[in-house]
Amino acid sequence: MSNQRVAIVTGASRGIGRAIATTLAASGQAVVVGYAGDHAAAEQVVEEITAAGGQAVAVQADIADEDAVAGMFDTAQRSFGGVDVVVNSAGRLSLSPIADLALADLDALHRTNIRGTFVMAREAARRIRPGGAIVMLSTSIVGLQFPGYGAYAASKGAVEAMTLILAREMRGRDVTVNAVAPGPTATDLFLDGKDQATIEHLAKQPPLERLGTPADIAEVVAFLTGPGGRWVNGQVVRANGGII
């Protein structure tokens, strides 16, 4: 047990977070499957991991609630002995022109994406063991600047800023801190509300001429949190097939 790495992955009940959780588990890490509300989906992830011979436990937590986040880290400590990897994949998306966005929607988005990321980063900085890795999820929309994504891109710009500063603040701790910024990725969240023509148009944008998959993003996270990624620190990795 002492040599096993332990990962906390938020937003792990579906989409990119789920792929990250199962990929890290397949590499031999024990995984805390963090989720906001869908208990059944989170338990399915745990079952998938354990059926493959891995170790996992599901923990419900609002990442913007510091007590809930502390409890998630407590569970990792109690169940597996500590925390070596923290991946914050939980996030909220609101699409609207800036002129039309309700401020209540802006506040809800920023509560999850900015405050939630900060709370996760703060707890990770306090508790992660030497040799550990922290990865925050941003978005390539920060650079693509698609209309309708103003509030979302602004929140993820904040995620990138605090991630890169945390990397410098962890000096002397032997902990890497990076962000991964996916491009258009074929998740339920991304595909919802888009017609086939829009999806096909977006898929043609990268030189590789396809949408990303959750597995594409999970493999980047696995590299950054594994032994091969130890010299990558304080970076934003734009995993988007070359779209920008």
Rank of each mutant, 00 (worst) to 15 (best):
I199K: 00
F146H: 14
T22C: 07
V177S: 08
I128L: 08
R14V: 12
E43D: 14
V57P: 03
V180T: 09
I8P: 01
V31F: 02
V83D: 00
A104W: 13
A7I: 08
L144A: 13
K156Q: 00
P182F: 06
W231D: 12
I16L: 08
M120R: 11
H39S: 15
R173Y: 01
E219Q: 15
P207A: 09
G172H: 02
R230H: 06
A26F: 09
P184C: 07
R14A: 15
L109H: 06
E160D: 08
G229N: 11
Y152M: 08
A153C: 06
L144T: 11
L191H: 04
P130Y: 02
D216Y: 05
R18W: 12
A12H: 06
V159H: 00
D100G: 01
S89L: 00
G53S: 13
E160K: 04
R210V: 09
R111W: 04
L191P: 07
T225F: 08
T50P: 09
D188W: 10
F118I: 11
D216R: 04
D192P: 09
L24F: 14
N88L: 01
D74V: 05
R230W: 08
A151E: 08
A56S: 03
L208M: 14
G37D: 10
V159G: 05
H201N: 12
R115T: 13
K204H: 15
S79K: 15
R127W: 06
S2D: 14
Q77E: 15
P214F: 02
A218I: 07
Q77M: 12
V232A: 05
G212D: 05
E47D: 13
A26R: 15
M162H: 04
L224R: 02
M136K: 10
R78H: 15
G242T: 03
A26N: 13
A125R: 08
G15Q: 07
G34V: 07
T225E: 13
V83L: 05
A218Y: 07
D105Y: 02
M170L: 10
A64D: 03
G53K: 12
A41L: 05
S13Y: 02
